[in-house]
Design a protein around this nucleic acid. Structure first.
Lengths: 216, 216
DNA sequence: GCGTTAACATACTCGCGAGTATATTATCGA
DNA sequence: TCGATAATATACTCGCGAGTATGTTAACGC
C-alpha cells in the first residue's frame, strides 16, 4: 500500500468534455442559476479552479455544453434526408421517431427547458440553440414535405413551412412537459402514442383530398 | 402652492394589482432571477418594503402575477364552447385566432418563456401555469374536435387529445420564439399565416377521407 | 532524475439582492 | 382634532456564489 497515493490525475484531453457533459446534466436538473460551478466540478471529481482553467466563464460553459450536445444529436437526423426510396410518408414517420423517440428525447426535453430558462439572462445561448436545434429540425421536415409535394404524394397547396414548424415544436414542448408529469398528472401522456398520432395527423393533413385528385 | 406637498398616497386597493401587473411585465422582460424587487417597486412608484407588505416573498409575487393574468385571459376562450351553430371547423378557426391572434399573444409568449425559466427554481409556479394555461387551452380544443367527431364532420378515428395538444403547444412555442426573431432571423414568421395555416392543416387532417366516407 | 510547466487545488474577495427591522406618515373613525 | 394603525419609506443584515489570486503537484521532455 502506497503511503502517498495519487490524489488526482491530469486529464487534459478528457476533462473538457467530462465537464461539458456534467454541466449539461446538472444545469438541466437544477437550473442554470441554481447550479454552482463547484457542484459541476465536484461531479467530475475536481474543483472550481479547474473549470476556470478550461472555460472563462459560467456562460461560456453553458454555451459550449449546448454545442457539444448538438454535435452528436443531429447526425442520425440528417441521415434520413438520404433515404430516396419508398414513400415520403415513411421517411417522415422514421424521422419523427428518431428525433423524439427513445431515451434521448429525455435529454432533448431537459435541454429545451434549460435554454428557455436562460433566454433572458443569456440570450446568445438561446439564439444559438434555436438556430442549431429547432430550426434545423423543422427545416429537415420541411424539406421532406416539399419532396412529397413534388412527387404528388402530398397536396400542392400545403404550407410545408408551417406544418413542419408546428409539428416539431408541438412535439418538443409536449415532450419537455412530460418531465413535469409528476406534479401535473393531466399533462402526462404516452410518448409513443404522442409521436405516432402526431405523424398520422400530419400525414392526413398533407394527403391530397379526393376532390383535388379528381381535378388533376 | 402647498409648501409641504403630498409625497405619496395610500392605495390599499389598487396597489396589489398594480404590483402584480408590473411584476409580470418586468419579470417577462428581464427574467425572474435578473429582476430585483426594487425594480418592480420603482415601476409603480413605491419601494421594496411596500411589496413585502402585500406579498410574503418574491416567489409568491410571481405566482400571484401568473394567476392574475390567467383570470382574464381565458374568459374569451371558454366562450367559444357555447357556440353551437355552424360547422365545428369555423369554431375551431375562431378559437385559434382568439387564443393566439392579436396583440395579446405577445403577453402569452412572454409569459411562456418566463415560466419555463423558473421551472426548476420554482416548480410550483410552473405546475400551476401548466394546469391553468396550456392544459385548459388544449382541453377546450379537444372538446371541439370531439364534437366534430360526434357530428360526423371529422374522422371518427382521429386522436383528438393528441391533435389538440400538439396544435396548441406548437403554436405557443412558435409564437413565443417570435420574441427572439431579432437575433435569429430564420425564426421569424408572420403570426397570422402561422395561425391560419395551422388551422387549415389541422382541419384537413381531421376531415374524413373519401374512402372512409364511402364505407359509411 | 530533474526542471518546467500545465493541470490541478486552496483560499480569498466582493457585489448583489432577498429578506428584515424599524422609522415615518397618510388617512380614517370617533 | 386627535389617536390609532395601516400603508409606506429607510436602513440595515446576511448568505451566497462567480470570479480571482496564488499556491501545489503530476507528468512530460530532455
Amino acid at each position: 500500500m502506497t503511503a502517498k497515493m495519487l490524489r488526482w490525475e491530469r486529464r487534459p484531453d478528457e476533462r473538457p468534455s467530462e465537464l461539458l457533459e456534467a454541466a449539461l446534466r446538472i444545469f438541466a436538473e437544477r437550473g442554470y442559476a441554481n447550479t454552482r460551478l463547484e457542484d459541476i466540478a465536484a461531479a467530475v471529481g475536481v474543483t472550481k479552479g479547474t473549470i476556470y482553467h478550461y472555460f472563462s466563464t459560467k456562460e461560456e460553459l453553458l454555451l459550449r455544453a449546448v454545442e457539444h450536445y448538438h454535435e452528436r444529436a443531429f447526425q442520425p437526423l440528417e441521415e434520413v434526408l438520404h433515404i430516396k426510396s419508398g414513400p415520403v410518408s415513411s421517411v417522415i414517420r422514421l424521422y419523427l421517431r428518431r428525433a423524439f423517440g427513445q431515451l434521448d428525447s429525455n435529454r432533448l426535453s431537459v435541454l429545451t427547458l434549460l435554454v428557455h430558462g436562460v433566454a433572458q439572462e443569456v440570450p446568445e445561448v438561446f439564439h444559438h440553440w434555436l438556430e442549431r436545434g429547432p430550426v434545423r429540425g423543422w427545416q429537415i421536415l420541411a424539406q421532406l414535405i416539399e419532396r412529397g409535394k413534388a412527387s404528388g404524394e402530398f397536396r400542392a397547396d400545403a404550407d410545408s413551412e408551417v406544418a413542419a414548424r408546428v409539428t416539431m415544436s408541438g412535439l418538443v414542448l409536449q415532450l419537455a412537459w412530460q418531465q413535469y408529469a409528476v406534479g401535473a398528472p393531466s399533462v402526462a401522456i404516452d410518448a409513443d402514442q404522442l409521436i405516432d398520432s402526431t405523424a398520422e395527423l400530419l400525414l392526413a393533413g398533407l394527403r391530397p383530398s379526393r376532390a383535388a385528385t379528381a381535378n388533376a
